[in-house]
Simulated assay, not measured.
Amino acid sequence: MDAVTPTESSPRILFIDVDGTILEHGSVIAPSTATAIRAVRERGHLVYLCTGRSAGDIHPDVAAIGFDGAITNGGAYATRGEEELFFHPMPRADVDRLTSYFEENGVHYFLQANQQVYASPGILGMMTSFLRMRAARRSEDLAHLGIDEDQQDLLNAVLTEAADRYLPVSEADRDHIAKAVFVSDRSDSVDQAQRALGERFHVIPGSMPMPGGSNGEISLRGTNKGAAIVEVLSILGLDAADAIGIGDSWNDVEMFQVCGTAVAMGGADPQLRALADHVTTGVLDDGVHNALATLGLL
């Protein structure tokens, strides 16, 4: 990361992504990350999660770090402590339109509510290769941190967790859906969805490193992390100039646009890094800690 002059001592508010920022490959956190976030809060700064995940799908090790609030579901839902600040679900007609599009085009999908994620039939079977890759990378990540675990045990744990985590899409309450995620064996599924749905929906590439095919995220147009941050800052009476955003993927673009300081993780897409004010190191190479230290928050 480029050297910068430490910020003044006035309180700041930090919005921080989860996957690829706090978590590497869905399950591993660098010890320095939790320590740094807690230290920032102890110094009087606010720290909010800002994630595309549903609140109920946040890894328990992330939640255990402790935060002042959270923006979840890609900007559709926000809390301060236990208080709900706002929830902007998709209208039922839009949810029906999305599911019809997915089913007509043979695309597997998840529907996200605030506390639950619903899976279309067959999607977990399709994602087996991805889950196996995630288990292998988790083993590598743990080894990077000096922790040894049996890879087969890790694979079994990942597969079991995925099977237990998601409910059938037939059980979804379509009046409380915030976001959709889709997975396809086609390489052009994101472009296709953008052409078919783009006038009403915000369609962006997903962050799952699939071994083949493609995946994406869909929210209502106007529902994104940046819009949610602006709304949260208004409620809290804080200035965007004092906000810091840290992220790594395309659902962080709008966050970078509204925060006074934007920090990209070392593993972020080069085009996203180009939008950032600063680039820190990788997730497991103390990226969050290094960013907060350089910005004068530690």
Rank of each mutant, 00 (worst) to 15 (best):
H45C: 03
L46S: 10
L46D: 05
V47Y: 10
V47D: 08
Y48L: 04
Y48K: 05
L49W: 10
L49A: 05
C50A: 14
C50N: 12
C50F: 03
C50W: 00
T51H: 04
T51L: 03
T51S: 13
G52W: 00
R53P: 08
S54Y: 03
S54H: 08
S54D: 11
A55H: 12
A55K: 12
A55W: 12
A55T: 11
G56F: 05
G56A: 06
G56D: 01
G56L: 06
I58W: 06
H59F: 11
H59Y: 10
H59D: 14
P60L: 03
D61M: 13
D61T: 12
V62G: 10
A63L: 15
A64L: 13
A64P: 13
A64Y: 15
G66K: 01
G66C: 06
G66N: 05
F67A: 07
F67E: 01
F67C: 05
D68C: 06
D68F: 05
G69Y: 07
G69Q: 03
A70T: 12
A70R: 14
I71P: 00
T72L: 13
T72S: 15
T72E: 12
G74K: 03
G74F: 02
G74W: 01
G74M: 04
G75K: 07
A76P: 09
A76H: 07
A76G: 15
A78D: 07
A78T: 12
A78K: 11
T79Y: 04
R80L: 15
R80S: 14
R80K: 12
G81E: 07
E82A: 15
E83V: 10
E83K: 14
E84Y: 07
E84C: 13
E84S: 14
L85M: 13
L85Q: 05
L85P: 04
F86T: 09
F86E: 08
F86W: 08
F86M: 03
F86P: 01
F86G: 08
F87E: 14
F87Y: 15
H88P: 04
H88F: 11
P89N: 09
M90C: 04
P91D: 02
R92G: 09
A93F: 08
A93K: 09
A93M: 09
A93C: 11
V95W: 00
V95G: 02
V95S: 00
V95H: 00
D96T: 10
D96F: 02
D96M: 13
L98V: 04
T99L: 00
T99E: 07
S100K: 12
S100P: 02
Y101W: 14
F102D: 00
E103C: 04
E103R: 07
E103L: 00
E103Q: 10
E104A: 15
E104D: 15
E104W: 12
E104H: 14
E104K: 13
N105I: 01
V107E: 05
V107T: 14
H108A: 12
H108S: 12
Y109R: 06
L111Q: 00
L111M: 09
L111R: 01
L111C: 03
Q112M: 13
Q112W: 11
Q112I: 07
